[in-house]
Write a protein that binds this DNA or RNA. Structure first.
Lengths: 204, 204
DNA sequence: ATCTGAATTAACCATTTGGTTAAAGTTTTT
DNA sequence: AAAAACTTTAACCAAATGGTTAATTCAGAT
């Protein structure tokens, strides 16, 4: 019945994802999305009433993808250091698979934060449990004490930033050698883990 | 003589900076810049022939501001740890004064890296000396060994990312409390330094 | 076969946008 | 003070852009 519908809608979503991620909300053109999907521009408005609505739909899918559930890791019954290592692994796996996510999300969040805020409300993402687990590990003396927010942001910064700044790093540090840049990003699975662990272990 | 000229040009530059930083190249409108500067739109084209030329001029100024000379620090005759601490201080001072820089630069670099690349060529910024100094410190056993690029990027990530992700962090971690967010960013002068030092010191 | 409602398209529209032009001020030079 | 050069403006323009409309195609129901 709605086989055709689903198919077209999926084509549109895929095309919109591609174009929006590359150009952002402001830079993307409805015609370009239509071309990418191999359909007429009017069909975009038939499925998604406006550019804004279309963008919202795509943005939600991307945010869903970019905020994976690390709950299992965080609440698992393992040593805190291992939790940190697994969280970093999980994040870097995701980023290596979708390296464009950070730049896109940062761009759009700085353009209009309300969309993101509504999504966070909508599927109730809450950092408190994570912060609590960090706090507890500090109380138990497993790691050095600091405001848990800082440790959380430090881990995210070390993981995410190099992807967001990729074109800059690629040129300045590796003379535009994309192979070297990719290798660099892959090395970070290990590097970030070691760096963070060294920074938080309590010296014997 | 060219008092009027300088004045108008300066007004345009300031207005363009404001608008471009807030909206980016794609989101900014020439009319908005003209309004912000309190002049006619045609005057923008009289002083800067096109939107692109105007943007290039503003982008160059911003990049100039954002890449301060840390050469003095890096080549000074002090212990490596102190160099790191001073570099972080320098960067965070700059960022606390111009917190919008990271989001703007990341956005535009991911839109079109060539502009940035040309600027780097133009005023010959070269990371090799920095990397060399890091390498030397590792050779002397002052800090733990890793690819110097990783240490450099780690320091930059920890310093810059929280500013680029401000709207996200502000809402998710501090429920939109901008006072708390600002305090958090200011704390990082100390936090980042301690974190990095702990991560790189050679355990006794 | 035909009817019906959804899917798709080509053509069109109003607005926005970057950019131009010609004329009117204003300052500097002679 | 007149000429020359520079600065500023209002009005205009062509292209691009998001969006609409009316007509056509197509799939499934009767």
């Amino acid at each position: 019945m709605s086989n055709q519908k689903d198919n077209t809608e999926e084509k549109i979503v895929e095309a919109a994802k591609t174009v929006f991620i590359k150009k952002g909300m402001d830079g993307a053109r409805m015609q370009e999305i239509a071309d990418e999907a191999g359909i007429n521009k009017a069909l975009l408005h038939y499925y998604f009433r406006s550019k804004e609505k279309l963008f919202d739909a795509i943005f939600e899918r991307i945010i869903r993808m970019a905020f994976p559930k690390i709950t299992q890791i965080i609440f698992s019954d393992i040593h805190f250091r291992l939790k940190v290592e697994r969280a970093i692994d999980t994040y870097l796996d995701l980023l290596l698979k979708h390296p464009y996510l950070p730049a896109f999300i940062l761009k759009e969040i700085n353009r209009d934060a309300s969309l993101f805020i509504n999504l966070v409300k909508k599927f109730g993402f809450d950092p408190q449990p994570v912060l609590r687990v960090i706090s507890d590990a500090m109380d138990r003396g497993e790691i050095v004490r600091m405001k848990p927010e800082h440790l959380m942001i430090n881990v995210i910064s070390l993981s995410v930033f190099p992807f967001a700044a990729r074109p800059m790093i690629s040129y300045v540090a590796f003379g535009g050698d994309e192979k070297a840049m990719k290798a660099f990003l892959e090395e970070r699975r290990q590097v970030v883990k070691e760096f963070v662990i060294r920074a938080i272990v309590v010296s014997p």
